[in-house]
Design a protein around this nucleic acid. Sequence first.
DNA 1: GACTTGCGTGCAACCGCTTGCATTAATGGC
DNA 2: GCCATTAATGCAAGCGGTTGCACGCAAGTC
Lengths: 324, 324
Amino acid sequence: MAVTIRDVARASGVHISTVSRTFSAPHLVNPNTRTRVLACAEQLGYRPNRAARALITGRTYNIGLIVADIANPFFPPLIKAAESQARKHDHHIFVADTNEDAAVEEEVVRALAKQVDGVLLVSPRMSNALIEQLSREVPLVVVNRQIAGIPAVVMDVARGARIAIEHLTALGHRRVALVSGPRGSWTSREIRRSATATAKTAGAELTIIGPNPPTEVGGLTIAEDVLRAGATAVLAYNDLMAIGLIEGLLAAGARVPEDVSVVGIDDIMLSRLTRPKLTTVATPTAAAGRAAVDMLLAHGDDRRTTAQIHLQTELVIRDSTGRA
Amino acid sequence: MAVTIRDVARASGVHISTVSRTFSAPHLVNPNTRTRVLACAEQLGYRPNRAARALITGRTYNIGLIVADIANPFFPPLIKAAESQARKHDHHIFVADTNEDAAVEEEVVRALAKQVDGVLLVSPRMSNALIEQLSREVPLVVVNRQIAGIPAVVMDVARGARIAIEHLTALGHRRVALVSGPRGSWTSREIRRSATATAKTAGAELTIIGPNPPTEVGGLTIAEDVLRAGATAVLAYNDLMAIGLIEGLLAAGARVPEDVSVVGIDDIMLSRLTRPKLTTVATPTAAAGRAAVDMLLAHGDDRRTTAQIHLQTELVIRDSTGRA
DNA sequence: GACTTGCGTGCAACCGCTTGCATTAATGGC
DNA sequence: GCCATTAATGCAAGCGGTTGCACGCAAGTC
């Protein structure tokens, strides 16, 4: 059916090993032979079967990319950047969606392990211990999590949360709510830690609401909790929740930002387009995707990087925050 | 390094072929043996290597999914649904982003062909002829394109465009602009054909603007073309362009919907959240993703489906349209 | 002219797994 | 009690490649 190395060998009158070398070690074959083999291959439409090659070389030229929810606008730019970067290096990407479920994450990593050179775990919900264990089975790069000995790309959300809280307290807010994210999220813990410390320093009261599903609906449903807490400002785990929250607040008759200021995190495309436009902490998702792929590929060459790359975040002030 | 079928065979004291059968043809092995083998496999953490298996069986349990732009909010729900459906049937998904480039599409299909059971081509920009040729090299299911003999899932945008135009003319609009999509898009041609016919019937004048890149920026930059054309209503190729267009119109001092009514297509999440909320033609993207995967998998069993599935669209009236 | 050198190629084993066929042992029929 | 079945397992070839090794041969050395 499909054209194999043997067809090319037959057509060009050489042994299959010569054809093989034409592709994977061209300097070992005579230029004339090489030209002839390439011509035959071209004419027959031959393409090496990567899976077969991987059986021997151990390199699949595939990467696994595992995210919690493809439909969450935070992920697509990261996926896109990772895919692009991977393909630039002639790799293909398996994408899996775990629906925020740690058990699915584990299962998918294991299922993919044999047919990839490594796995990118983006915003994992698994425990550190499990990630460490899996990283012994397949090269892993983690995005948005810090674990000793595991290569990682982390966005500095702690700083982002600090700046966001400082922005709010500078506007005079003294009762601030923190809408936290899903259980198992390292990012959510970081935000919480940093926001708590910053609020304390600034002498503001911080009410923590959560954990919550990191979606628009998650934000919408806690609007009344926020009002009940008497908060005049809110920092949400991500933009989607912030936007949902604003919907909920408006529906409950509160004005944004006159009655309640809202800050999101991520700076997804959406946040420029809603009304009011969302003040948010921009995270460099595309850069993270590229960096993670680069780490994974470097990983392959010199064994076992454990480097951790930090990417900076910044506050983008728009229209959803105002004076207390 | 990794545990192979031989390790399991050694541990359980049987031949590798028995281990193999334990997994792929359990009824052929004695229940006692089977239990023992499974226990050993479990204990060693054995997982069959799918790539190796595929070498013989020809079934990879992988699917390729090719889209024009992952970051375009139209695609993620489709990708998510497809991935979910695929995994339900124990398949994994390669995702590739072509950046709206037909040449990249072709290259990726070919690159993926050997390691997948089939490819889903979503909103392809390639020519029909090329798609037909590729479909002889690897099973293909196309979404949003009709080609004789190629299995497809199509959303009935023609009807959607008709209803959208009827909605506008019923509101009294007589000068309507159609903001078309990217070159090579079947959907864009369908919309154009249907909108043109409907406008004619309704006695409205239709100005076609485009082709344009199917993005927010694409919509933004043609706002003045729309105003110059004197249109009081616009149907845009997709929501993203409609939203960009509204931004542009507002920036130019026009009110929406008082001065200009805008209708989008797709009903992406965004369209519920912008102000004004977007009137749009909802397309069943998640259902399309699931259906396409189902077709591809069915394809594998009985050879060569050529069925085409049609999915209905419907108009969602929100706040971006009003009387002329 | 015999001897090293090294280039280009072929040979064959092997990667992890499947599968048609052969082999063996156990079962049933009469 | 003997033969034909059948069930369970082993054997080995082969899927499409890669790669260490050996071989042949022309060129260079003295």
